[in-house]
Simulated assay, not measured.
Amino acid sequence: MLPGRSLRRPSDEVINMDVSTNPSVPHVEFFPPPHKPRGPSRWIGWVTDDHRQLVRFWPVVQNMVVQDLRVRYQRSMLGFFWTLLHPILMMTTLTIVFSQLLVIKREDYAIYLFAGMVPWNFFSGTVNDSAFSIIHNEALIRKIFLPKLIFPLTRLLINLTTFVLSMVALFILMKPLGVRFTPQLLLLPVAIALLSGFTLGLGLIVATTNTFFRDCGHLVSVILQAWYFMTPIIYESTNLPPWRLWANPAYPFIKLFQVILSEGKWPDPSLFLAAAGIATVSLGIGYVAFKCHEDKFVFRL
């Protein structure tokens, strides 16, 4: 032992852990988490962030759409031609059956049926697929970061591609069936955009609900089947009272396609306003419901 040094055990040393006097320990102040904005500012933040994320991950969305369509028609001799052939075969079958059973005397019944059936198939197919869009991508959600909004959006784009190709099949049939091309066909992109907004809104609602309550996905198909027969697609709207027509949210959208394609007339402005209003409400409610529960999805998978 050196002179002037006293032997001290480590236990006798006093270690100063006071963060206010010990310069080696950083001074940390504990405050409640910052207040999250509410109201319109919060929604604007959601929309801005989602727009930025969708632009960033847009190649992922494109790849998912292409891969799904490629797998769907893999090892098929006709491939994508089924998107043209399937609606034609369905229209032919339904025209023969319902024109005989319902004794419909309408000359352009085939086009009338096609004009309502193809938009409805797009609508019901997207809503059905969206119900399971989060659950079926559980492994991907747990593995890497992806905006969860892209999964319902991908299902919409896949069915929208099929929908557009089916409309091509309709244009091919219009001339042989004696239907002339009219300037009103220029309104089809507007009708498709309104129907897409309405469909995406409902898709976001069922995707959110089915993630928390798995029975919802099975109920959706039953509800859509009943909804199909409540909508004037295989029969004319003149057979129903007006209040039953306007109580059906899908009616303005289906009617738009029927007026443009089958009747060749300019739709009434009130029809456009009704479709735009319903699409806006559906998309707004669906988006807010989805975003409010988005962070909880991973705990429910």
Rank of each mutant, 00 (worst) to 15 (best):
L2T: 12
D12R: 10
V19T: 14
T21L: 14
E29W: 08
F31C: 11
P32C: 04
P33H: 04
H35L: 12
S41C: 09
V47P: 14
L54C: 13
V65S: 07
V66H: 11
V71Y: 15
V71K: 14
R72S: 14
Q74S: 15
Q74Y: 15
R75Y: 09
F80R: 12
L84N: 08
V97I: 15
R106H: 11
E107I: 10
Y112F: 07
A115H: 01
T126K: 05
N128P: 11
D129A: 15
S130I: 00
H136M: 11
N137P: 00
E138N: 04
L140P: 01
F145Y: 15
K148M: 07
K148L: 09
P152I: 00
L153N: 01
R155K: 07
R155W: 00
I158G: 02
T161E: 13
I172T: 07
L173M: 15
M174E: 05
K175S: 08
P176M: 03
Q184P: 10
V190N: 04
L195Y: 04
T211N: 06
T211K: 00
F212I: 06
F212Y: 07
F213V: 13
L219V: 12
A226H: 05
Y228C: 02
F229S: 03
T231Q: 04
T231W: 03
P232F: 06
Y235A: 06
S237P: 05
P249V: 09
F253S: 03
I254F: 03
Q258R: 08
G264E: 09
G264H: 11
P267H: 08
S270H: 15
S270V: 15
L271W: 11
L273Q: 11
A276H: 00
I278A: 12
T280A: 14
S282Y: 01
G284Q: 11
G284M: 13
A289Q: 14
E294G: 07
